[in-house]
Design a protein around this nucleic acid. Structure first.
Length: 941
DNA sequence: TGCGTCACG
DNA sequence: ACGTACGTGACGCAA
């Protein structure tokens, strides 16, 4: 069998464009090359993997098709083509030409019509040919037959998918592929503005087609149906038939099938090379042409991908990389590519005390340098220094290896102490918190100004990725040497940094410092676009990184014996519960398997005939579902108990002691400073921000968080209703501000107003409801959601919300103006100017838009609370250091700070922590805290 | 690796 | 007709 691959260019371009939405590839000239890059990659991967014999790429044209002519609204509501795509198309065409692949295009027809026609003609003309249609578009399912298949390229972590008739039928739950168009006709297609039949979605369409086989037969038998569905099917017959017509791919397009033309050939190098250069696809260029893209001698050595006698993917011999020595002249010549990280570079190895001292002397004369540490572990507390790299200007960097003997290493680190303590020099790094922690273990403190490319980018685009490789690709269009080439992929087989050859680690480490330093000007340029961002970086995030490093290194003391005892109890209890479950179920099974559990509950015990299934076809067995079943069958309660016991045991009781550092005997979480979309911190390895407190059994775990010794106690300080206070301040809502400023219980006050009763008449139930409403408001909740969370009817919920807005008109106005502003600006921001971009705020898709609107309300509130506690943390840490206290800040949990407090300092701490927290940001609303002290974290609450 | 579930603010 | 409250991280299962 020969293989013919037909590509739907536009569909693949769109897909590539959005796949790179998070980290678009931008060339040095500001060209967004994501779409071209993704498209090229797809083509090349297919060529490499599938070895096609014939190739063709189909494009749409701007000319109207029969679909536009017969149905004016066709694709009319479609959002304007993103500009990046418009620009990308000519490049894609040039690229396809350079690869010498025929372009299939015809005015008046869309790519799918062309591909359909060619595919059908090809299999008829040649019994030895198999056609693969490269497209992510589901509509192609209708064309599939024995030798015509859909080939969905790999996407978002999913592998490639090849769909033949069997697969297509299974996907749509139909008997044969002709029914695809019936399905499409009934469902319509929002993307193309094909209406379908109102009230019929995928599920209904599936049922109808399964029952009646085709649209014609369905419309003949509408009398067998009833209600609104029947009405719609009868009234919208014509619209349904038209929709099917529009969704039908034409296979009779006037285009010839010229097999010889489609035969795969070699790419045209004269066209390809300049094009790849212009697009700055260095890695791709190497893959296609098998040459070194840039004259970097060292990199060629480090990269095993290119060998002198290697064959490239097109089967051509690869030229050996030319020996290269970068002269000053050559450096001058390439300097106009001033954003290219991998142009001329000089990476020096620095060894021996004399050389190191001379390097330090040199760095000490700079106003700023960039550095990076190479270590034996990703866990800072455990990490031993393997080496350090330093860059001071573009293209030049130094690598200093450190001895494995820790006493010798310590002596060498000591040489750098003064340099890092020099307040006149700015220290630049990527994720500087990690380097601070590593150095702190060697007694080195970083003083003076710092800069962190990760944190800078977090403030520019909080929702994108901030690792150095991603930044380098995005801003420098350069793919740095990967750590994996040095030590292998993560996992058991991962090698050790110590085992890497000196020359390799030098190239890698020095490049990291070099690239990081090169990123800075690009990030600064972006930062300058938000007037508050620079201050936010310098006054909040960078000082906070230092504070977080201290907190992490400090660690938390854990009562291991207590947890071990608890583990035993949990083990016994959970066995008991499991046994009961087996008895009640009448058989043994894996209770922890949602799949098996679902089958027991809903098939064997038939607990709920309308049991909901997840998108993967399994029964839902979540907490909400099981709670509802509690009244029906005792198994529900047992399973919930079992789950709680398992969760507590596996996630906390057994896991936490494992994470105690052998070096310090304490647990050291990592606070992630550039993860959340709103500005909050997150905590991992372990996550100490989700230690149980809501259930009696769960909160016991907090008893294991104890002070370091008998002279200390745990002190916990948390903001009271901080998000609600912030909303009151933003909204300047008089009623709510009054409640806070007069120190009235705000949920009680809300209940009194919304339910129109006196303050003294507020029952606990009314207060509970009011609290739920207050929370819901912060999240932009709907009547449906409130009804769900309170277990009341949607009508009741709506009345409550309406009344809420009558009583708190400022809140309503705040929500409305926030959304209006977000629509205009495309982002919302916190009190300190931390932005969140809301790309979907104008989306035509209601779900997407609603989601963006809820984010618009929530992000400034949640984010401003984060701003506030961050400022408080910085000031409290400064206070502790200024006063030389023995007490230490050890945790932060969104609105709470936890301290290991020396008993002699507790009263003093209490006063100052309260004052600093309350005064961190002045928003014009009274801020209150709650502070508690105890022998463990639970008692401190 | 993705999914379902569940811990927190 | 659909989905329906924001923000996280970790674990076990199943593929």
């Amino acid at each position: 069998m020969k293989k013919l691959f037909l590509f739907d260019a536009m569909a693949l371009i769109y897909r590539a464009h959005f796949a790179f939405a998070k980290t678009p590839r931008i060339s040095s000239k500001g060209l967004n090359t994501s779409a071209v890059f993704g498209f090229t990659n797809t083509i090349l991967e297919v060529i490499q993997k599938e070895k096609p014999d014939y190739l063709g790429v189909a494009f749409d044209t701007s000319a109207p098709t029969f679909r536009h002519i017969e149905y004016t609204p066709y694709k009319a509501q479609r959002e304007k083509q993103p500009e990046d795509i418009t620009i990308a198309i000519p490049y894609v065409k040039k690229l396809v030409e350079a690869l010498d692949i025929p372009i299939l295009i015809l005015d008046g027809y869309e790519a799918d019509d062309i591909i359909g026609t060619i595919a059908k003609k090809a299999v008829r003309a040649n019994p030895e040919i198999e056609v693969y249609m490269m497209t992510p578009d589901k509509d192609y399912g209708q064309l599939v037959e024995e030798r015509i298949k859909m080939y969905k390229p790999a996407f978002m972590g999913k592998g490639v998918e090849v769909l033949g008739p069997k697969e297509v039928c299974a996907k749509w739950n139909i008997q044969n592929v002709d029914q695809v168009i019936d399905m499409l006709g009934l469902m319509g297609d929002a993307v193309d503005n094909i209406p379908g039949v109102p009230g019929v979605g995928e599920k209904t369409a599936q049922k109808l087609i399964e029952e009646y086989g085709s649209m014609e037969n369905l419309f003949k038998n509408t009398d067998k149906l009833k209600g609104k569905l029947r009405e719609n099917l009868e009234n919208f017959q014509e619209q349904g038939m038209l929709s099917r017509h529009l969704a039908t791919i034409l296979c009779e397009v006037p285009i010839e099938y010229e097999e010889e033309r489609l035969i795969k050939t070699e790419p045209n190098r004269e066209l390809l090379e300049p094009l790849l250069d212009e697009l700055e696809f260095r890695t791709l260029r190497r893959r296609i042409l098998g040459e070194e893209p840039e004259p970097v001698a060292a990199k060629a050595k480090a990269s095993p991908k290119v060998a002198a006698n290697q064959m490239d993917m097109f089967g051509s011999p690869v030229a050996a990389p030319a020996d290269f020595m970068m002269s000053d002249e050559a450096e001058e010549a390439v300097s106009h590519f001033n954003n290219l990280a991998n142009t001329a570079h000089q990476y020096h190895l620095v060894q021996g005390e004399a050389a190191i001292k001379s390097l330090i002397g040199f760095l000490a004369r700079q106003t700023s340098f960039c550095f990076d540490t190479e270590t034996t572990s990703l866990t800072a507390v455990e990490a031993e220094l393997v080496g350090m790299s330093f860059a001071y200007r573009k293209g030049e960097a130094f690598y200093v290896p450190f001895p494995a003997d820790q006493a010798e290493a310590q002596a060498q680190v000591d040489l750098f102490k003064e340099l890092f303590a020099n307040e006149a020099i700015q220290k630049v790094a990527q994720n500087i918190k990690y380097d601070m922690s590593v150095l702190a273990n060697y007694g080195v403190e970083i003083k003076g100004a710092t800069y962190d490319t990760m944190l800078a980018h977090y403030l520019i685009e909080p929702e994108k990725r901030h690792n150095m490789d991603a930044l380098s690709m995005a801003y420098l269009s350069y793919e740095p040497l990967s750590i994996e080439t040095l030590i292998g992929k993560k996992g058991a087989k991962q090698g050790n940094m110590r085992d890497v050859a000196l020359e390799d680690i030098k190239e890698y480490a020095a490049e990291d410092a070099d690239v990081t330093l090169q990123l800075k000007p690009f990030l600064d340029e972006q930062l300058a676009k938000n007037p508050k961002a620079i201050e936010l970086l310098n006054e909040v995030e960078l000082p906070l990184a230092r504070v977080l490093s201290k907190i992490e290194c400090e660690g938390v003391n854990l009562d291991v014996a207590f947890l071990q005892e608890m583990s035993k109890t949990l083990e016994t209890d959970s066995r008991e519960v499991q046994q009961k479950i087996f008895e009640v179920a009448g058989q043994e099974f894996n209770v922890a398997s949602p799949k098996q559990l679902g089958e027991i509950l809903f098939e064997k015990l038939k607990l709920d005939p309308k049991a909901k299934k997840t998108k993967t076809g399994q029964y839902q067995t979540g907490e909400e579902i099981l709670s509802k079943l509690e009244a029906e069958h005792e198994i529900a309660r047992l399973i919930l108990d079992f789950r709680e016991l398992q969760k507590l045991k596996s996630t906390y009781v057994d896991a936490l002691p494992q994470l105690i550092s052998p070096k310090t005997g304490r647990i050291h979480t990592s606070f992630m400073q550039a993860v959340t979309a709103t500005g909050r911190l997150s905590s991992k390895d372990p996550n100490l921000q989700n230690i149980p407190i809501r259930t009696p059994r769960g909160r016991e775990i907090r008893k294991a968080f104890i002070p370091r010794d008998e002279n200390f106690q745990i002190l916990s300080a948390d903001y009271s209703q901080i998000e609600l206070r912030i909303m009151a301040a933003f909204a300047q809502d008089e009623a709510m501000l009054n409640a806070f400023n007069q120190g009235i219980d705000v949920h009680k006050a809300t209940a009194a107003k919304v339910f129109k009763v006196g303050l003294d008449e507020v029952t606990s139930e009314l207060r509970r409801r009011a609290k739920a409403v207050n929370f819901g408001i912060i999240y932009g909740q709907s009547a449906f959601g409130l009804a769900g969370s309170l277990g009341i009817s949607r009508t009741e919920a709506k009345e409550i919300i309406d009344q809420y807005f009558v009583e708190f008109p400022g809140v309503k106005a705040f929500m409305d103006t926030t959304i209006t502003n977000a629509r205009e600006l495309g982002y919302v921001e916190t009190v300190l100017g931390r932005r969140r971009y809301l790309r979907d705020i104008l989306s035509a898709n209601m779900n997407e838009r609603s989601f963006a609107e809820r984010n618009a309300i929530n992000a400034p509130i949640q984010g401003s609370a984060a701003d506030m506690i961050k400022v408080a943390m910085i000031r409290i840490q400064a206070f502790i250091e200024r006063e030389n206290l023995k007490s230490r800040m050890i945790l932060t949990v969104h609105d709470e700070l936890v301290f290991d407090a020396h008993v002699s300092e507790i009263d003093y701490l209490r006063t100052h922590i309260d004052e600093i927290m309350c005064q961190a940001l002045d928003l014009g609303v009274k801020i209150e805290t709650g502070i508690g002290v105890g022998m463990n974290w639970l008692e401190a609450h």
